[in-house]
Amino acid sequence: MSHQENARGPKPKRLTSSRIGIYAFLVIAAAFFLLPFYVMVVTSLKGMPEILKGNIFALPEKPTFEPWVIAWAKACTGVNCDGIRVGVINSFKIMIPSTFVSILLGAINGYALSFWRPKGGNVIFAILLLGAFIPYQVYLYPLVRMLSQVGLYNTLPGIIAVHTIFGLPVMTLLFRNYYVAVPIDLFKAARVDGGGFWTIFFRLMIPMSGPILVVAAILQVTGIWNDFLFGLIFAGRDNLPMTVELNNIVNTTTGTKAYDVNMAATILTAMVPLIVYFVSGRWFVRGIAAGAVKG
């Protein structure tokens, strides 16, 4: 009896020490994950003289928003010194239509493939699925040629088309998997009522697609905003998205590097996806789970 009590005795103690270990691990991990963000923020609030002292982790002695102002309106990419605001506008101009078109097309595909089962539907699905895994490098050059043939290379519609093309696999998969779970009887009832392809799609399917539309929008908004490769190759000089401008500001400017301005511009570029992330919360995780279905 007493033996058993002894055996029980240390247990809470061991438990608390292991609890401390668990929290210690999590706090250290959190510090590792937060560190770059912290460094970004403090660097962006320092002046260059303070940065050159070399205390990258120190809080700013005299916080200044000057680097933010310069990053926004005056930072140079090559000969243009208009700041990153040009890229912000371009990124929105690319992101909004691309998100809309790719979701619409993905929804139509998912709906057609899961309810109407047209001839060759499985072929489409298989190729799109495979296409999602193949490195973009194999598509790039012919796509450049095709787009310049129709006059869309280096234009806004061109880059929107490219985002739509490469967003299609995941969008199609997302909506197909969502609609497959919708009871087929619902669809059949709508057919008996005389609903055609588009009527059922716009009046029945879209209104009940709320959750998956949110997930799709999160995936596309963050994905397209964060894109670098397509923007670099297809957008053209006048439509460069923010990520490309940011890299130009930081990595191709000559002369002394303005680390404070660079970090301010970096935070500005990360802002939109971070806001989406913090606002959407669990929806973002659902997006990952949904995107994970593809993998």
């Binding site: 994950f33 770059p36 970004m40 905003w225 670098f228 570029t269 990952i288």
Partner: peptide, 21 residues
């Protein structure tokens, strides 16, 4: 939230921050 936020950001942002650190 802390562990997942880097995943929301662009690889460009990640690369530039770490290059600076």
């Amino acid at each position: 939230t802390i562990f997942l936020y880097p995943y929301a950001m662009s690889f460009i942002v990640t690369g530039l921050v770490w290059a600076w650190i």
